[in-house]
Amino acid sequence: MKPAPFAYHKPQSLDEALALLSEGAEEGALILAGGQSLVPMMALRVAYPPALIDINGIAGLDAVEVSGTRVRLGATVRHAAFHDPGFLPEPLGPMLHAVAENIAHYPIRQRGTFCGSLAHADPSSEWCLVASVLDAEIELRSAGGERRLRPADYFEGPMMTLREPDEMLVGVTLARPAPGTCWGFYEFNRRAGDFALGMALVLYEIEDGVIANARLGLGGIEEHPRRIATAEAVLNGRAPDEAVFAEAAEAAMAEVEPMSDATTSADYRRDLAGTVLRRALAAASRRTTHEAA
């Protein structure tokens, strides 16, 4: 199928883009960044925006700013940027590299963007999980002003966020985990590159032999990825071992309210929630052991 007709704009500056967006938002004009989710929806005529505002020509939008405590990614930083584990300082660089390897396929990663994933808000989006677990700051800008939202205040449901139609997601800021933070990521899908049926991202520090500052989240299970506070609470203050991980997984399984669809039931997703979390925790603990050795 071919997309329905639309007007195409290629602004050269952010202000120009925001002006076009504010003009067209009411009729449904959309920002085009990587287009790897939007264009298939247009080709299937599920989405038919009357106008697209292509931001790929705006200089500087692909900027990456690294400070002592934070990393800011601009709107057109692509998934492929993370193919290089050294793209960001440790432990963020290797962690996001490991996550990015699970995002769709290589040619999709060449064009798709980090911020575009947050704007699209697929429940199985790896970057939405990363943003949730790292408590990212999501920058929304319109011709009228700017606001910054935390994931808990931004994600609303499957492909639904609290971004207003005249707002553009111009960047995202991630807090840098402390050096020595243990992390683990595990994604379950049926084939390489498929949307996750369940995934978990875990970070924790070890202080005096016990877990501190545990941060973990699940994606692909519920209507949007989020941190699972009860499971974090199980971990903090405990020594990392299989029994504790199993307990955290039990807590997560009890807390989640999984989605259900034609091919994947809520029960199976709940079951997977426990498994992917245990496996992500095991991966994190292997990293501790490895680094200690």
Binding site: R190, A192, T263
Partner: peptide
């Protein structure tokens, strides 16, 4: 029919 794209109907790829 609910599996009407290659994202929903799974063909074997080189990885499988």
């Amino acid at each position: 029919p609910l599996s009407v794209t290659f994202a929903d109907y799974l063909l074997v790829t080189s990885a499988e």
